[in-house]
């Protein structure tokens, strides 16, 4: 019996690695889709200096809030490719039958999604801080806040996109369902950045962002997997 469990465990490990490799490969093959979020982020952010004027005070005041709002939207924009294509082409059934728990499948798919959405936002964010003429402290505070916050956005979004799989207005409804749930991340993300910029101490909001990420990591896989099971009925 132990032997059987060990073999199953190794198969599971093997399958999990295979899935991660396949999803990363797919993300590279359709780089246009993968970069959609970060390109949207860059383009729409560059509209703000044009829209509200290039005055450094105004930009610095609204900067962290605008960057966070656009980060939410950028992640939202890329959510529908999380499970939809896998449901349509039957890959989701294949994954369900592999013996790999669906919860693990969800964690892997979310991790790959974050690598191709949230992580890119983190990497370009110092540039955006300069664009919005944020003070020097934002150069570390903004990427750190996004690093803690964007995985939560992916995980919470994953619940929404799994629940609305197969519904015709999927992506619009996902936005309506998920955006209200993003509000806590927005609030603490902005207060972390502002706290660091204004020298008010930002430890508490950073810790809360981290706590939200852990909670989402613990709960979202189960909720998402339940949604996926319903979608396959």
């Amino acid at each position: 019996m132990n032997e059987v469990n060990r073999v199953n465990g190794m198969n599971g490990m093997n399958g999990a690695l295979a899935l991660a490799r396949r999803d990363i490969r797919l993300a590279f093959r359709s780089a246009g889709d993968s970069l959609l979020g970060v390109i949207f982020f860059l383009v729409s952010l560059s509209l703000f200096p044009l829209g509200v004027g290039a005055s450094a005070d105004v930009l610095a005041r609204i900067g962290s809030g605008v960057i966070w709002v656009l980060a939410l939207l950028a992640v939202l924009l890329t959510l529908d490719r999380l499970y939809e294509s896998d449901l349509d082409d039957g890959s989701l059934e294949l994954l369900a039958l592999s013996g790999l728990p669906l919860e693990i499948v969800v964690v892997i798919k979310c991790a790959v999604h974050w690598l191709t959405s949230g992580l890119l936002l983190v990497l370009v964010s110092p540039l955006l801080a300069i664009l919005m003429s944020l003070p020097a402290d934002a150069l570390w505070a903004l990427p750190l806040a996004l690093l803690l916050g964007t995985p939560t956005l992916t995980l919470v979004g994953s619940i929404g996109s799994a629940l609305l799989l197969g519904s015709r207005q999927g992506s619009v409804l996902t936005a309506l369902l998920v955006l209200p749930l993003y509000i806590p991340v927005l609030i603490f993300g902005v207060s972390a950045v502002d706290g660091a910029i204004l020298g008010l101490g930002a430890k508490a909001p950073f810790l809360i962002l981290a706590a939200m990420q852990l909670a989402a990591l613990a709960l979202a896989p189960f909720a998402t997997a339940a949604g996926l099971r319903l979608a396959m009925e």
Partner: peptide, 11 residues
């Protein structure tokens, strides 16, 4: 083996 073939077009 269901109706869908579970094939990824990009691979």
């Amino acid at each position: 083996i269901g109706h869908a073939n579970a094939i990824k077009g990009r691979l």
